[in-house]
């Protein structure tokens, strides 16, 4: 079944080039339950790929595999490979810190660290050894500008980050993630807790960043996928059912489950 769809639908990309995330035969088990079943997919570099599907289909699990946050969930077992720049992320000798540094994460709700706005952005760089105040100042300003937050917070950098609005917090989290110079941005329904204006802000940023970063986002908002995604992956019950260029998957789904989901029959 799956093999068939792969032949019918043009692959997003065939080769595991530099920068692409290539998933090969990935299985994830939570105890006895299999959360991901034989995932084979290549996510193209410098594009926005949206992962859609009903809740519980494994979208977030797949995302968590990329930066190995899956490690911190008790009782999981992972088999298969996720290749990035010729290295397997799940190689037992892989440096998890280095992998995570390459991937900025935006979670469903913003989680500012319990410290000031400045320290939130400086958190990553400091951990990776940058100590010089002038350098940190530059980094903080640069990435707060990148996240379009600088103008709103420049005069209160030393106040607790928890004092910001939810929308501002999410942009702060974006700046915090960017400050360690990732190649990839992972978004786990990054706008689901935000008001429409803040959501638009984040979407705009994603589109702007497309040339600099590979963006992978999980979303349950189909319209959002239509608006910003280049490629779409549809998952159902732990499997990839269909994937390809956004308009093709959305306008012309090959699989009945995909079309049912798009029509709102499965949710």
């Amino acid at each position: 079944m799956k093999k068939e769809t792969e032949i019918l639908v043009p692959l997003m990309t065939e080769v595991c080039d530099e920068g692409n995330i290539c998933v090969e035969g990935l299985n994830v088990y939570y105890g006895d339950r299999q959360a991901l079943k034989d995932i084979n997919i290549t996510l193209p570099a410098k594009k926005i790929t949206a992962i859609i599907g009903p809740s519980g289909c494994g979208k977030t699990t797949l995302l968590k595999c990329f930066n190995r946050l899956i490690d911190s969930i008790d009782g999981t077992k992972v088999t298969g490979k996720v290749m990035l720049n010729g290295e397997d992320i799940f190689d037992p000798h892989a440096d998890v810190i280095k992998i995570r540094k390459k991937m900025g994460l935006l979670s469903q709700r913003p989680y500012p660290l319990p410290m000031s706005i400045y320290d939130n952005v400086a958190y990553g760089p400091r951990i990776h050894g940058i100590r010089k105040k002038s350098e940190l100042n530059q980094i903080v300003e640069y990435y707060l500008r990148e996240a379009s937050l600088w103008d709103e917070v420049m005069d209160r950098l030393n106040t607790p980050a928890s004092g910001l609005s939810i929308g501002q917090q999410q942009r702060l989290c974006l700046a915090r993630g960017l400050a360690v110079k990732p190649e990839i941005i992972l978004g786990d329904e990054p706008t689901s807790a935000l008001d429409p204006i803040s959501s638009a802000h984040i979407e705009k940023k994603f589109v702007e960043f497309k040339n600099k970063y590979t963006i992978v986002m999980v979303t349950h908002i189909l319209r959002q996928a239509i608006r910003i995604a280049d490629y779409i992956i549809f998952m159902y019950l732990g499997e990839i059912i269909e994937h390809g260029p956004a308009h093709q998957v959305l306008d012309n789904p090959k699989d009945k489950r995909t079309s049912d989901y798009i029509k709102g029959i499965i949710s």
Partner: peptide, 27 residues
């Protein structure tokens, strides 16, 4: 302490201990 807060720290490349020391204990 929410798992996602820990993940926020881990995802910028902090070690578990750094996360404990700088985020969890503070929170």
């Amino acid at each position: 302490i929410p798992e996602d807060l820990k993940n926020a720290s881990l995802s910028v490349g902090a070690t578990k201990w750094q996360t404990v020391k700088l985020v969890i204990l503070r929170k």
